[in-house]
Amino acid sequence: MKKILFNPFEQFSERPLILFGIAATIVLSMTGAFFNARFDGVLDLHFSMPTFFSNTLTDNAINIALLSLTLFALGKIRNNKTRFIDFFSASLIARIPYYFLPFFNWNNYIYNETEKLIQQFLTVQPGAIPEFDTIQMGILALFAIVSLVFLAWFIYLLYQGYKVATNAKGAVEVVLFGVTIIVAEVLSKIIFYLIN
């Protein structure tokens, strides 16, 4: 079970990974739209209204394509034997944990509370401290912590996929992987800026 959750790439071939990854992406894009989530960047999740299924599906398709291509480019430089399909399956599977975060926005709770918080900051007198609701702050803090845990899970899965695809070993590979993810994030922000 631990292997399935944290490194399915070692055990499962590309076909079941891709089929499961595509099915999960489609179904969880629907739930993402239901909870008004936009994945407008490789590492991004924002809540905005209204959000349609076509929005979340396009977001996820762009992010998966970008991650697959940038990691494949790095993988090809590091190990000529690597295959694009392994990066594609890794990108599909690694993002799945991230798709569960929109469930926190049940009844637009996170969106509404964040909006309230912004309003509190905007309307407060200069120099004064805004009054925060403890429960509101607690839930937003919990959401932030869970988001970080799921982001770490997503990155860990992606690195395991990269490692299996390229036979990567050592600290240099970790650094190169990190730099590539940042490049993918920057490229995704440019693409989302241009299409939205």
Binding site: F9, E10, Q11, F12, S13, E14, K81, T82, R83, D86, V164, A165, N167
Partner: peptide, 18 residues
């Protein structure tokens, strides 16, 4: 080999490369 070992293709290829 991957089918026999119950591992993915790149995992087996990596083992061979090692």
């Amino acid at each position: 080999m991957a089918n026999q070992m119950g591992k993915s293709y790149p995992t087996v290829r990596n083992k061979l490369d090692d």
